[in-house]
Design a protein around this nucleic acid. Structure first.
Lengths: 220, 220
DNA sequence: CCCACCACTGATAGTTTCATCAATAATGAT
DNA sequence: ATCATTATTGATGAAACTATCAGTGGTGGG
């Protein structure tokens, strides 16, 4: 309590704090892996701590309950994804194209980040209205595009629910039936959504086929 | 094994068979109630049999596992809902309107059948490609409308995933934020989807505002 | 009326999961 | 080097859940 000189000001309250953060993140990461495989709640705390290579007792140092950990893990995924999309679309001027590119990139995640895609289909629906992660960003993009006169949906929340739900449905379809769908289908989905928001066929087609930024690949 | 005279031919293999069906349905109904409240799997078999007012041991006479029962309950819901929609839209000629009316009626279920709406948001996504329930009916409607030249989506499966996902997203939105949405929003959603499928603004608006069939109300 | 049959029932044993806690190890200041 | 502080750890007892099974009761044919 006496050392307030450099402890917090420097970066990350020196070591002890970092150790704490590290085990916490280990638990979250392990949980993310499980969330991708099975749905929620079908895993014991023991399995999670084992997978995280952490003592069983450590769990209760960081989380009140299993649900608490699940929530943290999901928030973690959504926030990471949201930031990734923000970075990738940072250079795009047309707000409608920002939206379309976000949809196309997220749709492609079945290919690029299958783990995250599975987490989304297993747990995404209740987070369509979350104030963190993807939802607020999508709402922001929709509003930008509305302000720019490119979109004319009625209720923007209905528009958001429609887009988010469509995306989840698309991911689910691709994951379960890879034969019916490919990566260009994600472009088609984006085009569909642009039409839904009031754009003409031609305009929607053009915007949804522009070159995509960044080709970040990873198997998570 | 000797009496095949009137046993099966009459109606429902006389009493013993009916008793069996009754307890089975009691379990399914109780499970439906739980599915509406919490998500899947957060309930013990004991709770289910208690709620169904059935002996604990009876469970294993009818279902192999809890998951088995959940599946049966969900199928039960979806099938009932599908048949209801079929009945209500039976008199509509225009296939595009059949589709729109189905969407509008399902969207309104937050108001008319909140229990079923909750089951859909909790468990619906994985059933978007099921061969029973709503999905095959929606696909049928989409194909009818395509054949009639009223819809021009690209891949009909992408179209289906988009519509189903949008609906689930809408239900979720309404359930969690009743202040942002009302029953007319369901019409707006249908209109959005019609535009997504290639209809013009005017046409979509007209079709999505035609009078709805049947006003079946029930609190389930 | 009696008997064979079938679904129903709840107690039980065996397993799994949870939350706690006292002991241990790591950290950082003196 | 020493010590107070704090995170980590795995063992432990309690609680919950599952699957089974021997017994009960309703059903329908003889």
């Amino acid at each position: 309590m006496l050392c307030r000189v450099m402890g917090e000001a420097s970066k990350a309250a020196s070591r002890l704090e970092r150790r704490k953060t590290r085990t916490r993140q280990a638990l979250i990461d392990a949980t993310r892996a499980f969330l991708a495989r099975r749905g929620i709640a079908e895993v014991s705390i023991q399995e999670l701590t084992d997978a995280a290579d952490v003592g069983f007792g450590s769990f209760y140092n960081h989380f009140r309950s299993k649900d608490d950990l699940f929530q943290a893990a999901i928030t973690d995924v959504l926030e990471e994804l949201g930031q990734l999309l923000d970075e990738l679309t940072a250079g795009i001027e047309d707000p409608a194209e920002v939206f379309a590119a976000s949809v196309r990139l997220t749709g492609r995640m079945v290919d690029t980040h299958p783990q995250i895609a599975r987490i989304l289909t297993h747990t995404g629906l209740p987070y369509l209205d979350s104030d963190k992660g993807l939802a607020p960003r999508a709402l922001r993009d929709i509003r930008h595009a509305m302000a720019a006169g490119r979109f004319r949906p009625g209720n923007p929340y209905v528009a958001l629910a429609g887009a988010g739900g469509s995306l989840l449905g698309f991911l689910q379809l691709w994951l379960e039936h890879p034969d019916l769908v490919d990566e260009h289908s994600a472009d088609e989905l984006a085009e569909n959504l642009l039409r839904m928001y009031g754009m003409s066929h031609e305009e929607a087609h053009a915007v949804a086929r522009r070159p995509l930024p960044g080709g970040t690949r990873s198997a998570e």
